[in-house]
Design a protein around this nucleic acid. Structure first.
Lengths: 153, 153
DNA sequence: CTAAGTGCAAACATTTTGCAATCCA
DNA sequence: TGGATTGCAAAATGTTTGCACTTAG
């Protein structure tokens, strides 16, 4: 999806709530979608402070990230580093996460069969599923290799 | 497993670390295993303050819960209520969680096939799995019924 | 014009930590 | 006796909020 479309969609969503697409919101939206990595509110704020442009307060960053989540543009993920990290949702498929305990890398994966089994489990328990998240903790390929190399030494 | 055994095991584990089974630790252990529900550090502390017995500080509760986790007696779970909740691990099988968005209820479920598929996903990605947690968010049977009843009204 | 939005700093909430006093093997 | 432990209060941390001023439409 083109960035202009994203901006337009956000503006439309805001309109339905009688909210405005202000300059700070616009800047936050732009910057959030300019990265394709996971990022935290604090990181995003740091970027905005560092990079040239209008000043944007931490408070507005947090408030706008909340709006972007509510609007379904971003999703928050607790990657267990003490702060939430965000990722794009718009135009992306659902996926789960592998968290590397060594380097902090966040890897994405997906398996429809797992999702299917989740639904079955819900049916068994009479649970009406809204959302889920599956986090696998361990060591990514790179870190596994590195540690094997150390052992060999 | 009998409580006396749990106490003994904890004492042994502590010994391997040159740590002592003190009265506060003992009291925290006892109380933590006296409930079969999920509980938070704050709740546990409140129980200890309310119920008759030696005084126990919040700090010691947090510190001891950390030890019990490290020893593999308890597991922390982020049930998304702003504080960690704990559950027994000793003598219990692994399970995942369903979190009711309406009443906060935490339901447990398990499916070996899901675990198997997780392992497969890890193999595909070259990820060395250490642990995982799967959280399903939605509405439990009770709350689903209740909301259906409201609609009917 | 005026509801909505902003920055700032203070407030929050949970958890952690420094430290002097205390305990116990 | 000395390392481990405790309680207390202060600190840490990520996030939220109250408020007076500003802005968008």
């Amino acid at each position: 999806m083109k960035h202009a479309d994203i901006v337009q969609r956000f503006e439309e969503w805001l309109k339905t709530k009688s909210l405005k697409l202000t300059k700070p919101r616009r800047r936050i939206l732009d910057r959030a979608f300019a990265t394709h990595e996971h990022f935290s509110a604090e990181e995003l704020h740091a970027w905005l402070v560092t990079e040239p442009g209008e000043k944007t307060s931490r408070a507005t960053v947090y408030r706008t990230l909340a709006l972007l989540q509510e609007a379904g543009f971003l999703q928050a993920l607790d990657a267990e580093r003490g702060e939430m990290v965000y990722e794009h949702v718009l135009g992306h498929h659902h996926h789960d996460h592998m968290l590397c305990l060594s380097c902090g890398r966040i890897e994405e994966f997906h398996d429809d069969r797992i999702e299917q089994l989740q639904l079955e489990a819900c049916k068994r328990k009479g649970f009406e599923l809204v959302s889920h998240d599956l986090r696998l903790r361990g060591y990514c390929r790179k870190c596994t290799k590195k540690s094997a190399a150390v052992k060999r030494t």
